Simulated scan of single mutants.
Amino acid sequence: MRVFIAILVGLIGGFILGIALSSIIGIIGMTIFHQPIGIKFLPYYTALICAVIVPIIDQKNK
């Protein structure tokens, strides 16, 4: 059950982190290059990465 909760927290937190990173990259691109830049599907990638990393870190800290 603890692993399942860690995966859900990783998915939700990673998605939010991806949205924030995407926004920051877009702002920097508009400021420096005067055109929008970004990584396609970044929130989904970060959600998957965090869904793997968070349970691993949780098991090490347990």
Rank of each mutant, 00 (worst) to 15 (best):
I56D: 05
V9E: 01
I5H: 06
I32L: 13
R2E: 10
I39T: 07
G29F: 08
A47R: 04
I24W: 04
K62R: 14
L42A: 04
I53P: 02
I12N: 04
A20M: 14
Y44P: 00
M30C: 00
L11G: 04
I7G: 01
P55Q: 13
V52D: 01
I56S: 11
M1Y: 14
V3H: 08
S23M: 13
Y45T: 12
A20W: 10
M30K: 06
I5R: 09
I28C: 01
I5A: 04
I19A: 09
A51T: 08
S22H: 13
I57G: 03
F41H: 12
P43C: 00
R2K: 12
I56A: 14
F41I: 14
Y44C: 06
K62W: 05
K62P: 07
L21T: 07
M30V: 00
G26H: 01
I32S: 01
I19K: 11
T31Q: 12
L48D: 03
L21Y: 11
A20N: 05
I32G: 00
A6S: 11
D58F: 09
I37F: 06
M30D: 05
F4V: 12
T31N: 07
A6D: 09
S22R: 13
A20H: 06
K40S: 11
H34W: 03
F4E: 06
A6R: 13
Q35G: 10
A20T: 10
M1V: 12
Q35W: 10
P36L: 15
V52S: 03
G14C: 09
G26C: 00
T31V: 14
I32T: 07
V52F: 15
V54Q: 06
Q59R: 13
G10K: 04
T46A: 09
P43T: 03
I24Q: 07
L42G: 02
I24P: 03
Q35M: 15
F33H: 11
G29L: 07
Y45A: 12
I5Q: 04
N61Q: 13
G13P: 10
G38Q: 09
T31Y: 08
F4G: 03
